[in-house]
Amino acid sequence: MAVKPLLSVPREVKAGVPFEVRILIQHPMETGFRRDAVGGVIARDIIHTFECSVEGEEVFAARLEPAIAANPYLAFSARLERSGTMLLRWVDDHGVEAQERVDIRVV
């Protein structure tokens, strides 16, 4: 999880006007259904939980299954009335947790 995700969030937004958040996380999203060359099952390793909040208030959350393509991409929308720090957080099957913070100013 050392690789930074591609993240698109505006730093300045208008109060009450929806804006788009886009994120592309580098992750193999190994399904757990595949077998290797000698027939052994390749263990599942997916990002199963993704959450986005601002100052503790939920914006959006997703529970992902193996049917989400490798390097998961999510585009969703948020609407703020007050400035704050957006927290984006996700966890994979190895328990690896990663997060990004973005300060958003409402003008």
Partner: peptide, 17 residues
């Protein structure tokens, strides 16, 4: 996938692959 929309959700639209 299961999407949940919180209090600060904007336009109800999500894209993924």
């Amino acid at each position: 996938v299961h999407f949940r929309f919180g209090k600060l959700a904007g336009v109800p639209k999500v894209a993924t692959r």
